[in-house]
Structure formats: C-alpha cells, structure tokens
C-alpha cells in the first residue's frame, strides 16, 4: 500500500505529464494530417467520412470511461479506497466531454449522410441516456458532501448506467436502427479499409493522450486539495 501513497503518486504524475507534453504535439500533427489530408475519401460518403475520425474515438472513450468509473465506484463502495474515489472524480468530466462530442459530431455527420441531424433510434437514444447518467454522476459528485450518501448514490447510478453500456454496444444488432452496425469488431475482420483505419487509430491515440493529460492534472489537483486540508498535521 505504501506504493500508492500520495507522495509516490504525485512523482509519477509529474513524470507522465512531462512525457505526454513532449510527444503530444508531434502525434497530434501526424494524426490530424492523416485524418484530414492523407487518408482517402469514402466511395459513398466522400469527404464527410473524415468526421468519423473524431466521432468514433470519442464514442469509444465515452463508453470506456463510463465502464471504468462504474466499476471503480462499486469497488469504492465496497472497500472504500481513497485513490479510487479520486479516480472517479477526475475521470467523470472527461467522459462527459467525449460523450457529448461524439453525439455532436455524430449529428453533424448524420445531416449530410442520413439527411437528418437526429433520429430517435435505439443507438442514438441510448447514447443520450449515457450522457444523462454522466450528468447525474457529476451533479451528485458536486452536491453531496456526505461521503456515505454520495458513494451510495454513485453506486446506484453506476449500476443503472452500466446496464446501458451493452445496450449501446449491441443496439445496432438487436434492433433495426438508422445507425449502421459496428465496423470494427474484436474478432474477425473490420469492414473499414486499412487506409482509413490508420487515421482512426492515430486520432484515438491523440485523444487518449489528451485524456491521460487531463486526468493526471485533475488527479494532482485532488491530491493537493487533500494535502492542503491536512497541512497543519504534516
């Protein structure tokens, strides 16, 4: 447990922030140039396929962060681990941002492709529900000061919200939706041409690095907040 003391963590945070700062802009420029210039147009969608390079990674990040914080919340509720609580607090805003971004960019892609900004199909609606859960999560983090109540409410939200995750994932297969089925599968070949997968994964890397940076900064802020309260006892 000594390894996870705030002192050790903050040293690693500083190292990671420095590392990300040193490589971020190079990867950003490579990713953007692949996404906007080098990658080919789609045979049907033309250049609007480029929106996918920010839309899909955002959606993935929004979903995975929610799964991560939901599991952490439940573990934190059972075992009361201080670091897990800080993790939840630092990750939630990032997840909300990317969920919103994926909804907005998806809607911008939908206008030229489908002919509508929004449709109440199962995928889009369940994504909106995920956003709602993020909002409730963050509001409870802000307004419930009592720790015991807060963890209870967060666990309820997590359980309700995590049921939504497989619904989002499989909505396009279970029901008829306007949204197309997944192009990239864990097993089997993807139905995206390799020349379009490169920018997709590069942009995913860029956004993941960005998430890591924000996460580390927020985590450091939380540690400082706690240390400030205890400064007299140091």
């Amino acid at each position: 447990m000594e390894f996870f003391s705030f002192g050790n963590i903050i040293v690693y945070i500083d190292k990671f922030i420095k590392f990300i700062n040193s490589i971020f802009f190079v990867i950003l420029i490579i990713g953007i140039s692949f996404a906007l210039i080098i990658s080919p147009v789609d045979y049907l969608q033309g250049d609007s396929v480029r929106i996918m390079y920010v839309h899909v990674p955002s959606a993935w990040i929004g979903l995975s962060i929610f799964s991560l914080i939901a599991v952490s919340t439940i573990l934190n509720f059972i075992f009361k681990i201080k670091n897990l609580f800080l993790l939840i607090k630092s990750l939630a805003p990032i997840g909300l941002l990317f969920t919103c971004l994926s909804i907005v960019t998806g809607s911008i892609w939908g206008k030229p492709t489908w002919g509508t900004w929004w449709a109440w199909d199962a995928r889009l609606t369940s994504m909106l529900v995920l956003m709602l859960f993020y909002v409730l999560f963050i509001i409870s983090l802000k307004y419930f000061k009592n720790n015991e109540n807060l963890t209870k409410i967060l666990s309820i939200l997590s359980i309700l919200g995590i049921i939504n995750i497989p619904i989002i994932k499989y909505s396009v297969e279970w029901w008829s939706t306007l949204h197309q089925p997944a192009s990239i599968k864990f097993l089997g070949t993807s139905s995206i041409h390799p020349s379009m997968l490169i920018p997709l994964f590069l942009m995913l890397l860029v956004l993941l690095l960005y998430c890591a940076l924000i996460f580390l900064m927020k985590y450091k802020t939380e540690i400082i907040k706690i240390k400030k309260q205890n400064i007299k006892r140091l």
Binding site: L36, V41, Q45, G46, D47, S48, R50, I51, V54, H55, S58, P93, I94, L97, C100, L101, V104, T105, I108, W109, K111, P112, Y210, L213, I214
Partner: peptide, 24 residues
C-alpha cells in the same frame, strides 16, 4: 471545400478542438 462536405468536416473538427482546449 472537401468535396462539398467542408462545412460539416471543419465544423466537427473545430468543435472537438475548441472544447478539448477549453477543458484543458
């Protein structure tokens, strides 16, 4: 112009970029 899709492509990249920098 991006083959007529310029508005949509630039708008979505701009939104992502703006909100990411704001949060940063």
């Amino acid at each position: 112009k991006m083959g007529g899709y310029g508005f949509y492509v630039w708008l979505s990249f701009l939104i992502v970029f703006t909100f990411c920098s704001l949060l940063f």
